[in-house]
């Protein structure tokens, strides 16, 4: 019984992480410009991988490997948003203009190939 609940919890976490990755990748493909795409990538990276790793840590239980995976999650939660922030900031400071809804309507462009061409 406990084993079944354990396995079920692990499955749930890993599938939730994979779903996160799926939605993030879909967002990456559908979003219109650099800023919105980096939203998708960063969340995917931190939360999707975080959930999968959490599932694996619970699968291993409280031995060395499990604790090391938890440390890995902590590292991911610190480093991934920082990397996303650094990328977005570099774009912002070099003057890349974000896409807005008004732009898209005025230029008659569909989301997906506005801006970000150079």
């Amino acid at each position: 019984m406990i084993d079944a609940a354990h396995a079920l919890l692990v499955c749930f976490l890993v599938i939730a992480g994979a779903a996160f990755f799926f939605i993030g990748t879909l967002g990456l493909l559908r979003f219109p410009d650099f800023y919105t795409r980096i939203h998708a990538v960063t969340k995917c990276d931190a939360l999707g991988a975080g959930l999968v790793l959490l599932g694996l840590a619970i699968w291993r239980g409280p031995d060395g490997e499990g604790v090391r995976i938890l440390a890995l999650i902590a590292l991911l939660l610190i480093s991934s948003p920082t990397a996303g922030h650094a990328l977005a900031r570099a774009a912002f400071r070099t003057g890349l203009k974000p896409w807005t809804r008004n732009d898209g309507e005025r230029d008659g462009e569909i989301p997906g190939d506005a801006s970000e061409r150079d």
Binding site: Y35, H39, L47, T82, A88, R89, F92, R93
Partner: peptide
Amino acid sequence: ANTITLTPGTHCVDLDGDRVTVHCL
């Protein structure tokens, strides 16, 4: 800043003193 970046829908773009520039969907 990292909470903003991790929360879906918002992304921290710049932090300068107490000014936080945030890009949100």
